[in-house]
């Protein structure tokens, strides 16, 4: 197992490097330069391009970038926060986004699991229909509609929770955005749990466990849910991706200083270094989640672990 994990980590690092290369090439295809402001003359643009080393050949730029990146230097922002180290921007904004994303996953998964289990146990009942209804609403309405609705109701009408992000509010500041973001997670997890649980509950294996006299909570959570969760874990990866997209919008509505807002701005203003750095951060995050999923998968389902160990030496 240890060997497998080590190998898996090595592979992830290699993947990340390939991604950086691909991103770097993609970036060269982007039309426009960061310095096409109306007020700059062609000569001044040239000066700026050479100041930031953008007139060097692509391989030169690439190796310089990777070299600097290893020391934590992601270059400077050209337009969003002029002349500022991108690493400084990340340092300020990444923790906020991670916290928000983490809270949303946690909130959504717990709610989704409960909803899914309830629906599966009361299959074809009113409760099941209600659960289906909730989860359908969750995936059918974009998170920004939720966000504004929540903000209007709890922030403006009832004044229970802050409408705008303020670092002084601590976790309270995250309440509304996290709920808005977690709707998709909840819905997806609930759907998936329901399907998986129904399948597991009907399996011979469960009948065996049941006949052994294992009962109640233990039966559901230890045996049934454990089996169902193997498949649920696989959707964690895509969920993280959908959270990234959702956060771009929700961060804007609640004025949260996170990386989602930064990303949209960077793309719209051709801030190459910020796009590259953020794309890298998103990629690293995703790959980390996939790595965790793979390892968890192995822990939870011994058959897969064995198969993998066999396959990977």
């Amino acid at each position: 197992m240890k060997k497998y994990i080590l190998k898996r980590i090595g592979m992830s690092v290699a993947t990340l490097l390939v991604i950086v290369l691909v991103l770097f090439i993609l970036m060269q295809l982007l039309p426009g330069s960061p310095f096409n402001d109306e007020r700059l003359s062609i000569e001044q643009q040239q000066v700026l391009m050479s100041k930031y080393g953008l007139d060097d050949s692509v391989p030169v730029q690439f190796f310089r970038y990777v070299k600097n990146m290893l020391t934590g230097d992601f270059g400077k922002s050209y337009t969003i926060s002029k002349n500022t180290d991108v690493s400084l921007l990340l340092q300020n904004r990444l923790p906020t986004s991670l916290l928000l994303g983490g809270l949303s996953i946690l909130l959504g998964s717990v709610a989704g699991l409960l909803l899914g289990v309830a629906a599966a146990l009361k299959h074809n009942s009113l409760l099941d229909s209600m659960a289906t209804f909730f989860s359908v609403i969750g995936v059918s309405i974009p998170s920004y509609v939720f966000a504004l609705g929540l903000s209007y109701l709890f922030g403006f009408q009832l004044s229970w929770l802050p409408m705008l992000y303020n670092a002084d509010d601590g976790l309270r500041a995250f309440a509304l955005p996290a709920v808005a973001l977690s709707m998709t997670v909840m819905a997806t997890v609930a759907r998936f749990t329901r399907t998986e649980m129904i399948e597991v509950l009907n399996s011979d294996y469960m009948q065996l466990v049941e006949s052994k006299g294992v009962s109640g909570i233990q039966l559901i959570f230890k045996h049934a849910l454990r089996n169902a969760s193997i498949s649920i874990i696989t959707i964690l990866g895509p969920l993280v991706v959908s959270l990234m997209t959702g956060s771009l919008v929700v961060e804007k509505i609640f004025s949260i200083p996170g990386i989602g807002q930064l990303m949209v701005q960077a793309i719209q203003s051709n801030d190459y270094n910020v796009i590259l750095a953020l794309a890298f951060v998103y990629s690293a995050l995703y790959i980390f989640v996939m790595l965790a999923v793979d390892i968890l998968y192995g822990v939870l389902d011994p058959r897969i672990r064995l198969a993998k160990e066999g396959a990977n030496g």
Binding site: L148, S159, L164, S255
Partner: peptide, 18 residues
């Protein structure tokens, strides 16, 4: 200064006195 990009949200905050 508070950066609020969504104009509806900005307006709600104004009415809230924030």
């Amino acid at each position: 200064y508070q950066v609020i990009k969504d104009s509806q949200q900005a307006m709600l905050s104004y009415q809230n006195g924030e």
